[in-house]
């Protein structure tokens, strides 16, 4: 039941242009963001330091929740205290929630600000309050350790794939992986510029997960390419005509296509669930994963495979024996099965 047959190699210019355009849009967004915000994506206080207060009026007190919070009142209080009054939002359906993002406040400043706010607006419910304060140095450390994790994870994956497959497989997988990460970052750069969404330390987690998943998808296809190549060299020994790398890649992609689609779909289902129902913190995390996983599936099918074919085509033609790692040999399986049955 092959629903569709993709012709990856023939349509290579198309897939590469789509990715190229997406990457270029991302690069432009990052450049604009870099000049306006000083960073390729809008950084949250996790990375630059600061204080965020999320407050909610305590509605169990009579008369406390009569009217929604007035943004102007809050702005006024902030200005009176000499604080930047841009990062203020009234949240929640009835306008009873307040979110304030400002520079890193110490305990005295924060307490003073809170009592000023309570005096003008009403009692807040401490049980629904969220306070985040991150010092500027901690922020930099978080960012540095996050980037280190990204680099080490990529290096580890290259080494593992070089051992299990070959170096050129690893390089093409890494190209696909950077493609996914780069475009995801580009998308969030656009979100930062247009919607004001900021990325926090969970975004780095998301990028690392995307790396893991993208390689996952790519490995499954490479596994199949390796297997077909091995079988074709066996056939060659039996005087069959050799098949070109392009044909091998096309076959491998199409044979694993349903798996790629189904796996991506089943993984996306819970993520979409989190995106729609999950709390504020996990919403953007889930969205980053959704974008990254779709890109991961796309790049495995269209980029990683066609890049490998392109590389091999330039190296040698026609293909000779390539896979040197142990792979499941059909005849060994048959022998084992016979004993088992």
């Amino acid at each position: 039941m092959v629903l569709l047959k993709l012709n990856i190699i023939k349509q290579r210019p198309l897939w590469w242009s789509i990715s190229g355009i997406l990457a270029a849009i991302g690069a432009i967004a990052m450049a604009i963001s870099l000049t306006t915000l000083g960073a390729p994506v809008a950084p949250s206080l996790d990375f630059v330091g600061g204080t965020r207060l999320q407050l909610e009026l305590d509605c169990s007190i009579a008369g406390n929740c009569e009217s929604p919070i007035e943004l102007d009142t809050v702005r006024e209080i902030m200005s009176d205290r000499g604080l930047d009054n841009r990062g203020i939002q009234v949240v929640g359906a009835a306008g009873r929630g307040l979110s304030i993002r400002t520079l890193d406040l110490d305990v005295d400043d924060r307490t003073q600000l809170l009592s000023d706010l309570e005096e003008r607006i009403g009692q807040f419910d401490p049980q629904s309050t969220q306070i985040d304060t991150v010092g500027p140095t901690i922020g930099r450390e978080l960012l540095a350790s996050g980037l280190m994790a990204l680099i080490f994870a990529s290096a580890g994956i290259i080494i593992y794939l070089s051992v299990r497959f070959q170096l050129d497989y690893a390089i093409c997988a890494i190209i696909a992986l950077f493609h996914d990460v780069f475009i995801t970052v580009g998308m969030f750069s656009i979100f930062g510029l247009t919607l004001g969404w900021e990325v926090d330390s969970l975004f780095i987690v998301a990028l690392l997960t995307i790396i893991g998943f993208s390689v996952n998808d790519t490995v499954v296809i490479y596994d199949r390419i390796r297997e077909i190549l091995k079988l074709s060299t066996l056939d060659e020994a039996n005087d069959s005509k050799p098949i070109g790398i392009n044909e091998v890649v096309d076959t491998a992609v199409n044979q694993t296509l349903m798996r790629s689609i189904n796996t991506t779909a089943t993984t996306l289902l819970p993520l979409v669930g989190i995106f729609i129902f999950g709390g504020e913190t996990l919403k953007y995390f889930a969205l980053a994963l959704i974008i990254g996983f779709i890109l991961g599936a796309y790049s495995s099918i269209f980029i990683a495979s066609s890049a490998l074919a392109w590389w091999r085509e330039r190296q040698e033609s026609p293909v000779s024996a390539t896979a040197d790692s142990p792979i499941p040999d059909d005849r060994i399986i048959e022998a084992q099965l016979d004993r088992d049955e």
Partner: peptide, 20 residues
């Protein structure tokens, strides 16, 4: 595929902080 995911986890666990 699982080993590559584990490599990413290892990097996160080793270098990441708190929530990560």
């Amino acid at each position: 595929s699982n080993v590559t995911t584990l490599i990413a986890c290892l990097a996160l666990f080793w270098l990441g902080a708190g929530l990560v």
